[in-house]
Design a protein around this nucleic acid. Structure first.
Lengths: 227, 227
DNA sequence: CCGGCTTTGTGAAAACATGCACGAGCGCCC
DNA sequence: GGGCGCTCGTGCATGTTTTCACAAAGCCGG
């Protein structure tokens, strides 16, 4: 009676790994590999086989014992689960350095996320072409979103503008946001947000670097063999 | 006897949030705020107050009961813990679109991560200036790394080159990697890696979009009031 | 200087994620 | 067509992260 809709919810950690499996499997398939075991896949993904199997088991029982998984079929299943059976056009807000780099970067359209629009508040940028798309004014974002059926917005503005832009996007009907601005944004319940923040990543690395450095310093003074 | 070096290890999840607190606190400090409670900070960070307090408690007991935290002091403590008391120069590998965008983007040098070098394999790019830094050949990466005391490498190459580049960086003495290439890289034990992958982020958003869409479809057929 | 108000710091419980280990199923070879 | 070897799927133990809830501690006003 309910087809596939009452699919058990997939843990967030697993959802974050599925795209990795998908990429590996797609590449392997292109290289002519038709079958893979959880262990092979785990090696490529830098994980252990048990985790891979558990992750895949949330999709259903698509493996064959003693054999492994059929690559092509698994690609199909992951794509379906991730909702990649159709394109998701995105709107980019901010036509500065980052916005231009994102629009120009192939990785968007290639992978099912074509740039459906670019908007900016800066009148001097409105009307120009970025990555083959004409920049429109932020005020028109609702029209852009609705005319293209866009549900994903990419925020590529300075931090100070991010919250305002997020509000505008949500008001326009966008339900998922990818935020490159170095600011935490608040959104209504039911809206998804992912954040990409260069400074945060570097600072995390800094922490472990610093820690390594002090561990080393400590070792220099440690009793030999104490461990 | 051991000063602050035998600091208890901070959970990874907490380390990832400290940079967020740091940014919020720094901004508030610039706005003249001298004191904040865990609840205020939690609001800015989009978290709950208990989590903020527990995170901060790993640094030590720097709050005052009934009052909150002194912003300036906390900023200092977080910076110290994250190893941000000095600059960490980085080397960028790949002078293509992404590498150029990263080098040109202020966010690096601003925040204590100056671009100490850019390298590429493409002879036509070697010698050109990107973000004020002259591009050198990948073969010279060890010299660049060692002469500047660089310990963080940023991989901004196509996926196919990423593993090779990572190996070269590690061989050159780099101990932390920030990987923008859409590939999982393998590194020796003791090397830190963080990955930033646009396609993965979009695909995660796609999953939740798709899920929302099917939940909605289900509701349309559901018995009214069932929920 | 005391009592009430506020907010921290932290044990303990709950939720979540990972890793182990093994039974079950499948293909292949003899 | 039976046995052997391989690999999946998953229950259970372990480890990590989040959340709750409250005693302890500091400030302020009377």
């Amino acid at each position: 009676m309910d087809g596939q809709r009452t699919r058990r919810r997939i843990p967030e950690a697993t959802v974050a790994r599925l795209p990795v499996y998908l990429r590996i499997l797609s590449e392997q398939f292109d290289d002519g590999v038709t079958n893979m075991s959880s262990e092979q896949l785990a090696d490529f993904a830098g994980l252990n086989a048990a985790k891979v199997r558990k992750d895949l088991s949330y999709l259903g029982s698509y493996g064959t014992r003693g054999v492994g998984y059929e690559v092509e079929y698994l690609v199909y299943q992951i794509r379906r689960e991730l909702g990649l059976t159709h394109d998701w056009p995105v709107v980019i807000v901010g036509a500065g350095n980052l916005g231009q780099a994102l629009a120009g970067y192939g990785g968007f359209g290639d992978r099912g996320f074509p740039v459906g629009g670019i908007v900016d508040v800066d009148e001097s940028k409105v009307g120009s072409l970025v990555g083959g798309v004409r920049v429109r004014h932020l005020d028109e974002v609702a029209q852009v979103v609705q005319s293209r059926g866009i549900s994903i917005g990419v925020i590529a503005t300075p931090g100070a503008a991010a919250q305002e832009v997020a509000d505008a996007l949500v008001a326009a009907g966008v339900t998922s946001l990818l935020n490159f601005a170095p600011t935490v944004i608040n959104v209504p319940h039911g809206i998804s947000v992912r954040k990409v923040d260069l400074a945060v990543e570097l600072q995390i690395l800094s922490y472990y670097e610093q820690r390594r450095a002090s561990a080393k310093a400590a070792t220099l003074h440690a009793v030999p063999g104490a461990r």
